[in-house]
Amino acid sequence: MPKSEPDRRKRTAPDPWDIGFGAVLLAGSLLALFVWFPADIRGGFFHVNAIGRSEPGDAFFPVILASTLALLSAVQLALAVLRPRPPAADAASGRLTARNLRFLVIFIAITATGLAVMYWLGPLVVWLMRAWGLSDAEYRHLSDTAPYKYIGYVVGGFLMTLGLIVWSEGRIRRGAIVTVVVVLAMAITIFDLLLTNVLLPPNAEF
């Protein structure tokens, strides 16, 4: 069946995701060249070494790379506008959909909550114990002492892992709970008991 005119136009219309990809990286590389590098690279494009010879400085390679990226991005942008490719068979392919973004938000929320609990729970428990007069030590003194060193890791790790499992399965299963507990026990055995000079999260921070 012959394609209608709007159909044909749609098939060769510039893909906003192709244009966006080029535009974002072009803007990023120009920002790097004119704002980031001048502010954040102390050595220049060239520098004079100890024997008075001029040689490439710390900015030399980053500037070459960022310029190359800018050039490639400009080509990508131009091709996306001037020579659009027919879309892939799968409509969801090659783009971030609203469903992907919703997934990212939930994923990041669950992970960030788990990590926040992991980071703060141990110090919070010790702070409460101090407030109630049960202990006079600070968390940094107890960060290598059981059970304090495990509190944040176990509770935060449990919440994060089980949260993700429950979300992706749509239900809570006893098997999942047991698996997470066993994995946490194994991780503690390997990273805390068997390996020396290694700290579980978040104990190296305190």
């Binding site: 991780a187 700290l199 190296a204």
Partner: peptide, 22 residues
């Protein structure tokens, strides 16, 4: 659905222990 979150937990633990920080 179980394996991937477990891998995430182990990976985060391993990189924390290796590089010593959040």
């Amino acid at each position: 659905s179980i394996m991937m979150p477990v891998v995430l937990l182990i990976t985060l633990t391993a990189v924390y222990a290796q590089d010593g920080g959040f």
